[in-house]
Nucleic acid binder design. Structure first.
Lengths: 200, 200
DNA sequence: CCGAAAGGTGCAGTCAGTGCAAAGTTGCGC
DNA sequence: GCGCAACTTTGCACTGACTGCACCTTTCGG
């Protein structure tokens, strides 16, 4: 199904561009790398680069909105008896586990590079943002309200993004020694408790 | 103190550029407006435009990080007996009140324009993001931890940004009929309660 | 009124990103 | 195997954001 030669080649090229971009930016910084550099080292023409990513920044971040958008679908598929927060926690647990399953070094490198460049942080936020809009819709359906009429869907969707980003940040801060799923869970514990000041 | 001719002129030019940018983008969309257009109508050279804003997008959003950075200072200045959440709520209440005090139409127009352009949403997030980093430091001080060692400061700082953004979004959705401070407060009520599903 | 400091401007250049049309590849029915 | 249709890659030309530099104009303090 996904195994046409065309499909596989496209996937491979996309990944090659992303990894090349990451590596070069890690070495020289975002401004020290041009699209021509990335395309050249990945073995395609500069023009082709833009068939795969709309901007240079997107190639470095390398996460497409569709992958993140599945969160909303999974949320909608959770059993109806779960509260919104419970359902979200379950979805995040699954996602965090999948991320841990990807090639070892990809996420660490990605996060390190993104963390050093505010522009890329913003890009990452933008990707999350579009996912959160979809999620807000799904939450509204589950709680029987609409996005326009009630704060809750927007708020919870945004908080869910925060939980993941805070966990990713802590993961990076721990130099990837801690468990990502555990960090996500910890973040949700704090959120579900209403953000009480931690005991020192 | 702030009343040198130079100072006032700079402020005026900055505001003129921002308002011109907003107005033009509202009429023609972000891609229908060039920097030359904005500079021309605001009565300065295109080159001068970039003395005031680093990018076209920043001119449209028109919020500089320093203004947002004061949140961290105000937070640090809150009485020590307040919990982090209490202190944040107080800071936000003050900020929301100040925003309501600005020229009537500026925020509505800003929010409408930003909301229509994902790139600008990302820019706004970036501005908030830098403020949140400063805030996280201040929170870490107040709770006796460090940003690297504990999830809490990052998490709470990000949540505070979410509270404001969700309130702004709801304000826009209400066509600016509701009270912004009330919306911010409402968002914090939900957050402080641990995000329980709303009663329908 | 003058000299120093700061802001405004023109110029030339780099690079991101796009539309278009001409190759080059791949998939598929025969 | 063959060849046509569909898709991808690529080169080219162009727009527009953004920058460094050098020069001019305005403001400020004495």
């Amino acid at each position: 199904m996904t195994s046409g030669l065309r499909e596989r080649k496209k996937l491979a090229t996309r990944l090659a561009l992303h990894q090349t971009a990451l590596q070069l930016v890690a070495e020289r910084g975002l401004d020290g790398v041009s699209v021509d550099d990335i395309a050249g080292r990945a073995g395609v023409s500069p023009r082709t680069f833009f068939n795969y990513f709309p901007t240079k920044d997107d190639a470095v971040v390398g996460i497409d909105a569709s992958a993140v958008g599945q969160a909303a679908e999974r949320f909608a598929a959770r059993p109806a008896h779960e509260s919104p927060v419970e359902a979200l926690r379950a979805v995040h647990a699954q996602q965090a586990a999948e991320m841990a399953g990807e090639p070892e070094t990809l996420w660490p490198l990605r996060l390190r590079v993104i963390d050093e460049h505010p522009v890329l942080i913003a890009r990452l936020h933008a990707v999350f943002g579009s996912a959160e809009r979809a999620l807000a819709e799904a939450i509204a359906v589950r709680t029987g309200t609409t996005v326009g009429a009630d704060l809750y869907p927007t708020l919870l969707a945004a908080v869910s993004g925060v939980a993941v980003r805070a966990a990713l940040h802590a993961w990076l801060a721990s130099d990837f020694t801690e468990s990502l799923p555990a960090l996500v869970d910890e973040a949700w514990d704090v959120l579900a408790a209403g953000l009480p000041a931690p005991r020192p």
